[in-house]
Amino acid sequence: MTVPSYRLLDAGAARIAVASPLQTLHAHLDMVYPHLEPQDAAGFADVRVSLLPEALWRPGRRQVRMWCDSQSPFETYPVASALPLFEWGSNWLLSQRLNAYLLLHAGVVAREDRAVLLPAMPGSGKTTLTCALHLAGWRFLSDEFGVLDPDTGEILPMTRPAPLKNESIQVIRARPGAVLGPLFPKTRKGDVAHFVPDRDSFSQRHRRARPALVVFPRFQAGAALTCNRVDAAQAAMRLGLNSFNYQALGPVGLHAVATLARQTHAYELQYGDLDEAISQVEQLLESAP
């Protein structure tokens, strides 16, 4: 059998290769990865996947299935939603095999090379705040994965489009400079549209940053801004809880979160207004080590 023709996406911390006969998927990839120059797809890829339409005789709407290394650990999606399937599926695969790094469930933005980590559970407004900070002039490093190199303590960018969900789509679209991909209504996770980081963030995707600040964000509609310092021991525990692979890394993971918590300032930030939250994070970074 012939090898399908792959398209290689270099996100910084990882390279993802994708093959598909679906023209809509390629058009959508062009929209959400507009700053990636064509790459030699024969080079090493951390994840290599195919998105293939399911047989026509199956009942219901035409579905697409994602394959990786002859396996398909995912549910099918309607063919029109191939992009969300690709983004979620390839992130899941990366989370299984990038255990050379500590993977935090966190957005990461930076000023110069000083990074702010925004670790949070789903639904806490992490993606929205990450995108809003980026639109306010911060460098975008990642949304889903905060990738920490335990050997050096540095953060590696994983520059991929950030999946905005439901109400947050309008909130970010309304901000000047926001570039969003197509809207995918009623996916398994609700309405989704991908926020596209700017050209500078993509071109600096191999430039590492040093963590200076950890902010645990929590959006609460209508809430006044409250910001409390989190001590290092508690910050380390919460970083571990917001990690994909803290447990699996054993002593390496423990050492990584402890060092990260000691070398940064950590805060808990509850907010109802995005602009207030942005200026608060700006101030916190100024006083951080």
Binding site: R97, N99, A100, L249, G250, V252
Partner: peptide, 21 residues
Amino acid sequence: LPDPVRRHLLSAQRIAAHRGQ
């Protein structure tokens, strides 16, 4: 070993160590 290869092997080794534990 090339860097990406070392990373993937290290990743596998860590998961195996965790399961062994």
